[in-house]
Computed example of a mutant assay.
Amino acid sequence: MHAVAWMSGTLVSFCLMAIGARELSGELSVFQTLFFRSAIGLFALLLVFLMSRRKTVIRTDRVGLTLLRNVFHFFGQYGWFVGIGLLPLAEVFALEFTVPIWTLIIAAIFLREKITVRKIVAVSLGIVGVLIIVQPGYAIIDSASFIVLAAAICYAISYTVTRALSVSESAFSILFYMCLIQLPIGLILSLEDWLWPAGEQWLWLLVIGLTALSAHYCLAKAMLFTEVTTVVTLDFLRLPLIGLVGILLYAEPVKASLILGGGLMLLANLISIKQPTKAREN
Rank of each mutant, 00 (worst) to 15 (best):
R59T: 12
V128A: 12
A220K: 13
M7G: 09
V254C: 13
Q32E: 10
L183T: 10
L183I: 07
P136N: 02
A122C: 03
P276G: 07
T98C: 07
L191H: 08
L28T: 02
V245I: 15
A256C: 10
A150P: 01
I147V: 14
A171N: 12
T60Y: 00
N70G: 00
A222I: 11
V123K: 00
L205R: 04
A251P: 00
A198C: 03
K114V: 10
V12W: 05
N282W: 12
A144H: 04
R238A: 14
Y78L: 13
I19K: 03
K221Y: 13
S168C: 04
I105M: 11
T56H: 03
I208C: 06
T33W: 01
E200D: 13
A212L: 12
G262D: 11
C15H: 10
L11E: 08
V134A: 05
V228W: 01
H2A: 14
G126H: 01
L89A: 08
F72V: 08
P136C: 02
I157V: 15
L234Q: 10
L219R: 09
C15L: 14
S13C: 12
V30A: 01
D142R: 11
F35S: 10
E113M: 08
I109E: 07
L45P: 01
R54L: 10
V30P: 00
T230I: 12
H216W: 10
V63R: 09
